[in-house]
Nucleic acid binder design. Sequence first.
DNA 1: CGGTATTTTGACTATGATCAATTATAGTGG
DNA 2: CCACTATAATTGATCATAGTCAAAATACCG
Lengths: 253, 253
Amino acid sequence: MVDQQLVTKGTTGKLRRPKLTPVSQVACTKCGLSRLCLPATMDSPQLKTFEKIVHKTRPLQNGDHLFRVADDFTDIYAVRSGCFKTYVVDAAGREQVLGFHLAGELLGLDAIYQSVHVSNATALGTSSVCKLQYDEVTTLSQQMPELQNHMFHLLSRRISDLSAAAADHTADERMAAFLLSLASRFKARGYSSKEFNLAMSRSDIANYLRLATETVSRVLARFQKKGLIKVDRKLVQLLDKDALCKAAGTAAW
Amino acid sequence: MVDQQLVTKGTTGKLRRPKLTPVSQVACTKCGLSRLCLPATMDSPQLKTFEKIVHKTRPLQNGDHLFRVADDFTDIYAVRSGCFKTYVVDAAGREQVLGFHLAGELLGLDAIYQSVHVSNATALGTSSVCKLQYDEVTTLSQQMPELQNHMFHLLSRRISDLSAAAADHTADERMAAFLLSLASRFKARGYSSKEFNLAMSRSDIANYLRLATETVSRVLARFQKKGLIKVDRKLVQLLDKDALCKAAGTAAW
DNA sequence: CGGTATTTTGACTATGATCAATTATAGTGG
DNA sequence: CCACTATAATTGATCATAGTCAAAATACCG
């Protein structure tokens, strides 16, 4: 694999990461929770109240678990930095990746109705979260319609996303849709939507997309040959988004 | 893997074992809403208040649409009788069935965050629903913690179900799991869990399970030959649930 | 009944999985 | 800094599950 121009040959991916631009006016000072996981309509005093139930935690290292199946459910987590993967292990011991969660996204929502975690969450690289005690969230939601509403929206959105992901698509479509999804989420966070690092391994991607690792490799190679993307290890550049959208079988992103 | 920290003194008085939310004795007199879609802890006066926001509608005929993509989202629907299917149509015109919804189950939850429907819902056979104006639900949730909690639970449960359905399984596993899911839902509604009618066509089932219609036919035939089930047209009898569970790759239901 | 829908069955095919081998990459300790 | 190892990613060859195409059988409905 001959790659001529690497802006920086990566001992660390951090150096070359596109700069962050602040997204929201309001932000939780305590943990940097951006607008992405906060109600848009919160004013200052509300924010202050809200901050009281947000608890910082120390960062997790690659592979560390945030929670596991059957753990007591007491807290919701908001990703502060890094990336987490959630997964389950079925009766036959096969792992199934349920999702990847970037900064500003919530973890553990599937545990609410059973008061027990039904999935595992593990850090991909050094990552951190904010902790929100669930009963404090519900209590506060009683007083703050905006928060209640926001919770409904977040849950609804996850339902919608999962529905979309459940659809029947070819390997190429799924891969293209996956890359575009990452792009749009990075963009929403102020990062480049054309170039980003994959926090997860090929086999995690494969598992998430219900493909074999080899297929992921091949599809990426094929996309590259067709000029849709450029891949170098973890770094992905989207060269032709329109074509990618077409490959994904979706309207423009 | 599975921790043994199951001995936890409760921080709250809540049940925390993996089981369904407790069911209530009460039922909405107005539309027959069963305990399945009502908060378990509602008492009589609360129920009366709740009933005020429940609106009966006239039954729909087979194929009638309850809502379509891009329709304004104003109401949540609770299935009163019959069965509904929700689906989307992708850019290429392919239909994707998202789910089947039996009495007591809610419809339209994926529309909350966009205030617009993102899926279509159509009746399978003559079916009816109750209508709940969404902003009345949220307003009432502010005053009734039980209702808010119930909404969170329902949304969380749907997330959990969708996650499970998204997993990568063989045709046999998916079919077995599908039959068992129906069985358990019928049982929860007081119907037989061993014998029931399929409200949906083979091709709807196939689409939902991401299989070809022909494959559904073949799998059902295979199951019958192996003595797991008996199928006659729409009527299904589960003859050997244990074997079905094994075929589904799940623990007993 | 007669005509249309749906379902089933059979033959063949293709997409993506599996198996196997090779090449990169990241970590570790001398 | 460089072997040395373990892990991850890629590439090739072959296989199998489920899809597609085609046709027959069965159910549905006026």
